[in-house]
Amino acid sequence: MAYTGTPPPAGPIGSQYCVCKVELSICGQNLLDRDVTSKSDPFCVLFMEVNGKWVELDRTETAVNNLNPAFSKKFVVDYHFEEVQKLKFALFDQDKSSTQLYEHDFLGEFSCTLGTIVSSKKITRTLLLGNGKPAGKGMITVQQLIYLTHRLCAVVLPQDLFGKSDPFLEFYKPGDDGKWMLVHRTEVIKYTLDPIWKPFTVPLVSLCDGDVEKLIKVMCYDYDSDGGHDFIGEFQTSVARMCEAQDAFPVSADTFSGQNGARAVITRDFSFLDYILGGCQLMFTVGIDFTASNGNPRDPSSLHYINPMGTNEYLSAIWAVGQIIQDYDSDKMFPALGFGAQLPPDWKVMCSSDPCA
Rank of each mutant, 00 (worst) to 15 (best):
P7Q: 13
P8N: 09
P8D: 12
A10G: 12
G11D: 01
G11T: 06
G11I: 02
P12R: 03
G14E: 08
S15P: 15
Q16K: 15
Y17A: 15
Y17D: 15
V19H: 07
K21W: 11
V22S: 04
E23M: 12
L24C: 03
L24N: 03
S25P: 10
S25G: 15
S25C: 10
S25F: 13
I26R: 08
I26E: 08
C27M: 07
G28Q: 14
G28H: 14
G28D: 13
N30C: 01
N30R: 07
N30D: 07
L31S: 12
L31N: 09
L32G: 13
L32F: 11
D33K: 11
D35K: 12
D35M: 09
V36P: 12
P42F: 00
P42Y: 04
F43E: 03
C44P: 14
V45G: 02
V45A: 07
L46Y: 00
F47S: 12
V50T: 06
V50S: 00
V50C: 03
K53E: 09
W54Q: 12
W54Y: 13
E56I: 03
E56N: 02
D58A: 09
T60N: 07
T60S: 10
E61L: 02
E61T: 00
E61I: 02
T62P: 02
T62V: 08
A63Q: 14
A63D: 12
V64R: 06
N65W: 05
N66M: 07
N68L: 02
P69R: 01
P69T: 02
A70N: 13
A70F: 10
K73N: 03
K73L: 00
K74E: 12
F75A: 06
F75H: 07
V76G: 08
V77G: 14
D78F: 08
Y79L: 03
H80M: 01
F81S: 05
F81V: 10
E82F: 05
E83D: 04
E83H: 01
V84R: 05
Q85G: 00
K86M: 14
K86T: 15
K86C: 13
L87W: 05
K88D: 05
K88A: 10
K88L: 03
K88P: 06
K88R: 15
F89V: 13
A90I: 10
L91V: 09
Q94E: 08
Q94L: 00
S97R: 06
S98A: 03
S98T: 05
S98M: 02
